[in-house]
Amino acid sequence: MFQNRTEALALALPAAIFAAAVFLVPVVILLSDGFRVPTGGWTISAYTDFFSNSLNQAVFLRTLRLGALVTIASAVIGYAAAFAIVSLEPGAKGKVTGLVVLPLMISPVARTYAWIVILGRTGIVNQAFQALGITEAPLRILFSETAIFIGLLQLFLPLMIISLISALENMPKDAIPAARVLGANWFQVFWKVVLPLTKEGLVIGGTLVFTGSLTAYITPAILGGSKVLMLETLLYQQVAVSNNFVAASVIAFILIVMSFAANILLKRVATARNKQRSQA
């Protein structure tokens, strides 16, 4: 650790000032509209009004639930995939990592359309289900909450996997064998050794996935068939159709608070394990 404060500030401030000036200040001004009384003064009535509406409550809870489900699913699948990738030999590892990153490079809109082909009544999934005798009539997967879930998971899983790969690679190589020798089962190894040592990756990946799921607009619109309202859909309606920027800033602020809360919660989950371990 270097101690020189002036040097530290000189290095860090340009980025911080830039982000504050071109990003934070304009956004804060816009968001403050939601707290302003037209005649002067401040209020949170826009927020109490928003949450007193039962439709908004339902949409809020659904957005929260879907975001949490996508994040949990991507964490579970992400750990399995990251473990598998890390255990590969170096050459194969590079190629497989490349395949995981690949979907990030395709326009999200095009990917969403591809799901229409896959999940449709005559799509690949239904054809396979019927051929295997799992279902008789085609399932209606497309244009449902399930379709949104699948679309969002595919969109954001790569972010979780790459965050976890780098976290797993930084874990001391002997941590897992050591725990096994000491008699821990695989569940204990994961909970008491792997999770605390990879918490950074989980927090970063989880925040990216959760925030991405909350603020996705095109995927719910196309794969959900607009039958499933999400907060971002309401936000878009307010901005682009009703031109009601105050109402839009209220929804945006709620989304931001949700993202922050998720970030803090993820940090808590990971650190709680850590404390237990150091006490043990």
Binding site: I29, L30, T211, L235, V239, A252, I256, S259, F260, N263
Partner: peptide, 18 residues
């Protein structure tokens, strides 16, 4: 911060205040 603010709000804020 730029990661967690919905993009449509960022665009609008920049248009109106920058």
């Amino acid at each position: 911060a730029p990661i967690i603010v919905p993009g449509i709000i960022v665009g609008l804020a920049l248009l109106r205040y920058i």
